[in-house]
Design a protein around this nucleic acid. Sequence first.
DNA 1: CAATAAAAAACGAACAGTCGTTCATTTTTC
DNA 2: GAAAAATGAACGACTGTTCGTTTTTTATTG
Lengths: 202, 202
Amino acid sequence: MPKDRPTKGETTRIAIEDAAMNLFLTQGYAATSMRQIAEEVGLALGGIYNHFSSKEEIFAGIIIDKHPYKQILPAILAAEGATAEDFYKNAAHIVISEMGKRPEFMNLMFIELVEFKGKHGAALLKEIVPKILPVFEKAIKTRKNLRVTNPALLMRSFIGLVVSYLMTEMIISNSILSKLMPKNTEDAYVDIFLHGILKPVE
Amino acid sequence: MPKDRPTKGETTRIAIEDAAMNLFLTQGYAATSMRQIAEEVGLALGGIYNHFSSKEEIFAGIIIDKHPYKQILPAILAAEGATAEDFYKNAAHIVISEMGKRPEFMNLMFIELVEFKGKHGAALLKEIVPKILPVFEKAIKTRKNLRVTNPALLMRSFIGLVVSYLMTEMIISNSILSKLMPKNTEDAYVDIFLHGILKPVE
DNA sequence: CAATAAAAAACGAACAGTCGTTCATTTTTC
DNA sequence: GAAAAATGAACGACTGTTCGTTTTTTATTG
């Protein structure tokens, strides 16, 4: 059954989200006006309100529809076959590199936290968690060399690894600290997650 | 020599920063107006501009003057005497607990990233890094059981640990994931930093 | 201690915009 | 021909900043 071609309304709705996202990312949420969004889409100001009932609703739509986890998730699942060490190493590199390609999305999530205190982020998690958690559950069951056996904790620390790497990268990149960093910081950072900062007892 | 009592201007300047900080934290930066700040201080709108030349300058002043690292730093330095493992465990708990007492400051740094793309954060790092980096340098020199021997990397991953814990805590606290978390997540999280997620090879 | 002059601080009105949202009306799509 | 989409004007309110003026504070004299 061939998919119906999208209606005019659906096309416009997507165009509004695209334009608004670019403006939010480059200028911030509060600094972006509905007039700017309308102009970018090629619409009169009032026309937007046929598709979204408010500025906040546009933002919420973007968070759900445009988050890169939709591209990242299949890549993580494909990395599942290797050893536990390789799996986490590969998965971490995939996520960091995919998110690194779209550093704006970190900004989008920060905007979410600052402007809406996590309201829309919780909705996103509700969608993502059930899809990702089983990956960690399975990894724990099939791999015997994991110290961490709680799936939620493992997942949280994995997300924490990625978030903290990307966030410190953002903070540090303009500062004096970047000169002090070793090359291959990403590898070293992932390695700390895998092996910790301590030598094993001898 | 007794310290001169503060001048009227200094007192007012601090009052403005206090009022503005509370408003920025509860309402966000963009949503807070100069009129609100003035009213909170008990000042006419124009009076603020005798102390700060712009809204952004107020924010920059807050970042420098009010950041809790001034309270946290001495506590970290006091934890220096123990073993490497104890030191990082204690230090992490201190920072997490001190920052946890003021979760608003995470928000303040997010606002900084979103609104000013790290501009004022870099100024803060310039002040903090020279004070903290020696702690990690000394720890590496005097403790032999550290796998990580680059001070900047060790410091970054330590900051990353704290940031990622606090941030995932913020994100998760309203979501379904919080129900799945084990008790003592903070301990377990710090433990992953210390020992990694993998068992040592046997 | 008291009178002073200069500097700092506070006032309050005004400027020149921008903002999100609404709505009756017309046009386009289905 | 009914429903959806687009129009464009209007509303009422709020924005950061400036500036001439008045008041208060501060430091220096007698």
